[in-house]
Design a protein around this nucleic acid. Structure first.
Length: 526
RNA sequence: GCGGGUAUAGCUUAGUGGUAAAGCUCCAGCCUUCCAAGCUGGCUACGUGGGUUCGAUUCCCACUACCCGCUCCA
């Protein structure tokens, strides 16, 4: 591992550790040993996520008159996913090589012709060890039969409990041969038998109805693999009930599930994840231009929530790597400590989605333009963002450790989560300077009550004031409001009912009348 | 899915074939007039399940989870 990646790995460890110790993110079912790739958001994580989703919704739905919202069901009719291509079409059957463990796409295996050597097992006389397991090796014409036996011994040797035993000492059992032609059951690389082709089930499959039979195909339903499909399927209902005209969008935030995902990198890749998607429908002529517009709009959004442009990368997905129906796709990527990884895809999906559902359902999903007297299937541009990934990016971006020199001239580390105030889980901490002075405590509680209806604030009177400031730094609270003796009017009459406002990033303090707190904070967090 | 590594308190680590130590955190109390002060007290851990053993957190096996490298990611 290089120094840089080691440093990044250390950084990621710190971030994961802070997420747990401060209550942002916990492992799912931790007390039962954990559930692979599943995570729970703790109190602060839940606030953070809510802030992100709320802001996304406000920006893209409430503050625009061309986008409306939808909240579709997670359980999905199997016909929807058959039409979309998720059932069948997109899942490539794969085989694993029993010897080398290499994974091959079944449809890409070059058919082989030759002699198959079958074996039923192997024994090791000295130790008495043996195993019964069918295995075969394919030899093409002219190859030495001993090559098949050697390969088979190698295969069986992987089951040896005593790794000291040489594969050469293994006695093969039940050898027989068979002529085969054009077979794709063997690895062209080494002749080893492959596993049966297995369709990777990308989706979580379930049965509808409490008494549904496991084999009842008609009871099959799926957890949605993306939020997009319910938008396409409800396109007509939304269009007809909302007096919409192209171009317009339908937005949705919600959970999606993909079983094939190999969980990695903390919450980055999970089997259960939340998406924030817009399907923006338009005239076919406008698709390309709108893709560019959406890319810009989304980059601006990231900037607004505190992820600067210079930490984002835009990948113009080249021909051949895009989905076959997409004419243009941009990936917006973020520089995570574990690498540059995708946050969002902005894809021009043409009329693929509405076309397949029109065909699949037999219902017309065409759009009629009254003015141009033109009928067509709308094209769609899809900005599809990963909510959990964006949360992780916000956390990585916010994390900072700075060295400051304290009063005694000693260096110490201050951990600060530099969240944008819009995103910060706690907007302000209300702190009475001293806990054992009831006048301060009462006043602080008053301030807390005044702010609570408008934002998430946090009251804390435990320990020294400096400690409380640092605690808030570590969870990213942008402002600390301290009720002190000036507030009570004990020092100077004109300072009565003013408080200390301490800013997280600069640690600077200023005085402010209590009456100005609310407008001040609202302006910062909006 | 494959290979490697790891698993002790909320966090970071120590340690042992006879059930465990420390720092930080946290809680309570005292004290404290602005950046992790101090004092006193307190809660909390050997991932799960087997095996060996008189006895296992320690040795062995399996499982689970996390991390790293591949693979995969419509």
């Amino acid at each position: 591992m290089s120094d840089a990646s080691k440093k990044d790995s250390e950084l990621m460890k710190k971030i994961v550790s802070l997420c747990k110790s401060r209550g942002f993110i916990f492992q799912s079912a931790e007390i039962y040993g954990g559930l692979n790739g599943c995570w729970d958001y703790g109190p602060l994580g839940a606030e953070l996520k809510r802030n992100l989703k709320d802001y996304w919704w406000r920006r893209h739905v409430q503050e625009r008159d061309d986008i409306v919202g939808l909240d579709g069901s997670i359980l999905t009719h199997q016909d929807v996913l058959k039409a979309s291509g998720h059932v069948g079409g997109f899942s490539d059957p794969m085989c694993d090589c029993l010897l080398s463990k290499a994974r091959l796409r079944a449809d890409q295996i070059v058919p082989q012709t030759g002699t198959a050597y079958h074996f039923t097992g192997v024994t090791h006389e000295e130790s008495g060890w043996s195993i019964e397991k069918d295995y075969s090796v394919l030899l093409t014409e002219g190859q030495d039969p001993n090559k098949a036996r050697k390969t088979a011994r190698l295969y069986y040797s992987q089951f040896l409990t005593d790794k000291q035993i040489s594969p050469k000492k293994l006695e093969l059992k039940g050898e027989s041969t068979e002529e085969v032609s054009d077979s794709t059951r063997y690895n062209p690389e080494n002749g080893s038998l492959l596993t049966e082709p297995r369709a990777f089930n990308l989706m979580f499959k379930t049965q509808m109805g409490a008494s549904a039979d496991e084999n009842d195909e008609s009871a099959v339903a799926y957890l949605r693999p993306e939020t997009a499909q319910s938008i396409f399927v409800q396109f007509k209902n939304v269009l007809e009930t909302n007096r919409l005209k192209l171009p317009f969008g339908i937005a949705q935030i919600g959970k999606s599930f993909r079983n094939e995902i190999n969980p990695r990198n903390f919450t980055f890749r999970s089997r259960e994840f939340e998406q924030m998607e817009i399907e923006y429908f338009c005239h076919p002529d406008d698709g390309m231009a709108l893709t560019e517009e959406w890319l810009e709009a989304r980059l601006k959004f990231y900037e607004e929530i505190g992820i600067p442009r210079e930490h984002l990368h835009i990948l113009d997905v080249p021909d051949g790597e895009r989905a076959f129906y997409s004419k243009k796709t941009y990936d917006i990527e973020y520089e995570f400590p574990f690498g540059i990884q995708e946050l969002e895809g902005v894809a021009y999906r043409t009329d693929y989605d509405l076309s397949v559902h029109q065909k699949g359902s037999g219902k017309s999903l065409e759009y009629f333009d009254d003015q141009k007297k033109e009928k067509f299937i709308a094209h769609v541009v899809e900005p599809s963002a990963g909510c959990d990934r964006t949360i992780l990016a916000l956390i990585c971006e916010a994390f900072d450790e700075e060295t400051i020199t304290n009063d005694k001239g000693k260096d110490e580390t201050r951990t600060v989560m530099r969240f944008d105030p819009k995103m910060a889980p706690i907007k302000a901490a209300i702190l009475p300077l001293l806990k054992n002075k009831p006048e301060l405590v009462d006043k602080a509680r008053e301030v807390q009550k005044a702010l609570q209806p408008f934002m998430n604030v946090f009251y804390d009177d435990g320990g020294a004031i400096g400690r409380r400031y640092r605690r808030q730094d570590e969870v990213g609270t942008p402002f600390c409001i301290t009720i002190d003796f000036e507030t009570l009017g004990e020092e100077a009459a004109d300072l009565k009912d003013t408080v200390t406002v301490r800013e997280r990033d600069s640690m600077e303090q200023s005085r402010m009348p209590i009456s100005e707190l609310l407008p001040f904070l609202l302006e910062k967090i909006h």
